[in-house]
Design a protein around this nucleic acid. Structure first.
Lengths: 137, 137
DNA sequence: AAACCAATGCAATGGAAGTGCAATTATTAC
DNA sequence: GTAATAATTGCACTTCCATTGCATTGGTTT
């Protein structure tokens, strides 16, 4: 089991208190979070710091961005071994229309999508919307 | 061949000069457009009018909204017979990373996506990103 | 023509993303 | 250990898009 310090160091991210807290926050959440969610969780910290921390995590492929159609960007920790800048390992996301939460379905890979001749597919964003298991029960 | 007036009237939308012009603009475009695109095309008209016209078209299922991940909402005419509030007839969208345009691939239906037990799928948003036929040639 | 309702235009607001710069903190060199 | 250096954080501000309130215009109906 890797410690948070080890995760950060292995990606050449300097270990700071703030970054460890944000990483911990993301790890504990099982859903994708918005910047505002993080902001509310760390009222003492500045928006910009949180914003840039997430951007750093994103660049180093610790976090991936999710566009679930709500218009607000969400973020979630990448799975271990996931390399988000490699375009092939993409899982799908589920957005609940009831509780408004978005979760990663990490073991549901996106099927191969055929595109017309002349088109080159580089990346696929797939969001399924509906009712999640907690809300449908 | 339906006239624009007939299309609008059949959806209980009052026919105005503005609405006909906007409909015509959308019909001539083969790509999804942003509100700003429309704004630039009709400099004499107010943003709000364009915005509300699009919203009206959307409610009446003449236009569908596309979220291609650029953060800016785009709109495109629904195909004839398309009923965008019915969740079953969904086509995919292609966003070109080069020219930044987004087009509807109306004859490419979204494959059935399996979701885990307890989850209910109501809707699927699928955007493929890459290079379009014009840019790859 | 009067009354009514929908459509339009103007002004303003709100929310999220992003940037410049100063202040702070950690790291490296001496 | 201290000085120099580089990265991180906080504050203030800007920009852009989406959205709303309200007054005005314009078309319909009686």
């Amino acid at each position: 089991m890797e410690t948070i310090e080890q995760v950060l160091e292995s990606r050449n991210i300097r270990v700071t208190a703030m970054r460890m807290l944000i990483y911990k926050f993301l790890a504990e959440k099982e859903v994708a979070v918005t910047l505002s969610d993080i902001e509310n969780a760390f009222v003492k910290a500045d928006r910009t710091t949180l914003y840039r921390t997430i951007k750093t995590f994103e660049e180093k492929a610790i976090v991936h961005q999710i566009d679930d159609g709500t218009g607000i960007t969400k973020y979630a920790l990448c799975e271990q071994g996931c390399n988000c800048d490699i375009k092939t390992d993409l899982h799908l996301h589920f957005h609940c229309n009831n509780c408004n939460e978005t979760i990663c379905l990490t073991d549901h890979k996106i099927p191969q999508i055929k595109v017309p001749d002349g088109f080159v597919s580089e990346n696929v964003n797939l969001v399924v919307k509906g009712i999640c298991d907690k809300c449908s029960g």
